[in-house]
Simulated scan of single mutants.
Amino acid sequence: MTEPLGFSTRAIHAGPEADPAYNAVTPPIYATSTYKQDGVGGTRGGYEYSRSGNPTRTVLEETLASLEGGRHGLAFASGLAAEDAVLRAFTGPDGHAVVPHDAYGGTYRLFARVYDGWGLRCSPVDLTDLAAVEAAIVPEQTTVVWVETPTNPMLNVVDIAAVAGLAHAAGALLVVDNTFASPYLQQPLAQGADIVVHSTTKYIGGHSDVVGGALVVNDDTLAERLRFHQNAMGAVAGPFDAWLTLRGLRTLSVRMERHCDNAERVAEFLVEHPAVSEVIYPGLTSHPGYDLAARQMRRFGGMISFRVAGGEQQALDVCAKTKVIILGESLGGVESLIEHPARMTHASVAGTPLEVPSDLVRLSVGIEDADDLIADLAQALG
């Protein structure tokens, strides 16, 4: 075939077509820590120890790279382990990074409470304000500009290409956390990003049964440096975790279509509900980033945040009253999840510039019947 393969086809067929030993169509789980060598220094297939490389992990890494339009993929034990490898490889003592002012709480904790002890300074900035981004970048000191889009949990949409231009003009790398959009909805490398980060726990795995992370890059030199840190630090995806993640990845496109379908209907319902004071969803024309999201993304995603008129107590009540939608942290699984960010996923940023509103509720809209989700929210909102 001369025509490039489509996304769904690559999700299923990227990497080896079949197991070379028995022609199994599903990649096997190579549950081994080490490999018999043909001689001293003579590895078979390049594998010698599974921290450095494992055939199951290789298939996942090759598939992730293909779906993100990159040359190199690296799989980690968690999304934060992947982020840690980036910071370890490309920041240093007395360095500086620009981060979103509404970043995921775990990411901000890594920057502000782990790497600050190493001397790294970070500046939280509204990345939708390009003038503010440019002002926050410190020439010859800023090494990384970190983007989430859409952001967690405020669902702001950031212009990847524009921020890439600002970062590159100052000699900094642009890192894009693409977890909320997934490779199906958004391709940051094609828009100027240097490194794409994923918590593969979320949409890529898709079934709330595995924790993992990933990096995807195009540049060979960046990949070599990241792979060194992946091996040296050792927070790699195990073979069973890699296999589960790969299994989820194969159905990513069909799941994302259903997530988006359902989220659009739920958002429309919430907009009309008198107990809801604001609905934050990039697919609403009222969202300030709607036009950008329409250009930058295939569709608008499965995440919705909304604020309730009754303040924090009502937000807590709504989270407690849903019956189909599960109260829980994380996102991107086939089941719908509801949470109170201020007390749950973003508790670590309380009292910081990244503190989220106490009346905010975050929904990860699953792939159930949309009518059931709407009825559940209706009874919870009262």
Rank of each mutant, 00 (worst) to 15 (best):
M297H: 14
A263D: 07
Y290M: 01
M233V: 13
L222M: 08
G248H: 01
G212W: 11
H198M: 12
D291L: 08
H273S: 05
E278N: 07
Y290L: 03
V197G: 01
R247N: 11
G283I: 00
V276R: 03
D220H: 10
T201M: 09
R247K: 12
G302V: 00
H198G: 06
G234T: 14
R298A: 12
L292G: 06
A237Q: 10
T201V: 07
E268W: 03
S199K: 07
G283A: 02
S199T: 07
H198F: 15
V271E: 06
G234P: 15
G301V: 04
V254N: 01
E272F: 11
R225L: 14
R247P: 03
R295D: 15
A237C: 06
M256H: 03
G248S: 04
R295W: 06
S286Y: 14
T221Y: 13
R227I: 13
G213M: 07
M233H: 15
E264D: 13
G302Y: 02
V254S: 07
T245S: 09
S253L: 00
F228R: 13
R299Y: 01
R247V: 10
P239E: 02
F228M: 13
T285S: 12
T251S: 09
G212H: 13
M256V: 01
A214Y: 11
E278L: 11
M233T: 13
G248Y: 03
F300Q: 01
L284M: 03
V196I: 09
A263H: 08
D220N: 05
G289C: 07
E264G: 13
D241W: 14
L246C: 03
G205R: 07
V216D: 03
T221L: 15
E257D: 08
R250C: 03
G248R: 01
E278G: 00
L284A: 04
C260H: 00
G283H: 00
K202C: 02
R247S: 09
I304M: 09
T200A: 01
T245E: 03
G301R: 04
G234D: 14
H229Q: 15
G248Q: 07
I204V: 14
R225W: 11
L292C: 02
T201P: 11
G212M: 06
V217Q: 12
G206A: 05
A294L: 12
T200W: 04
F240C: 02
S208K: 08
V197T: 11
D241C: 05
V266A: 04
R250K: 09
E264A: 09
S286H: 13
M233Q: 15
H273A: 06
F228D: 09
Q230K: 15
Y290Q: 10
R265I: 01
A214R: 13
A293W: 12
D209H: 09
H287G: 04
V196T: 10
T201D: 01
N218Q: 10
Y203P: 00
L215K: 05
T201H: 11
G206W: 03
D291H: 13
V279M: 05
H198Y: 14
V279F: 07
L215R: 06
A293N: 11
E264Y: 03
L249F: 05
I204A: 00
D220P: 08
L284R: 11
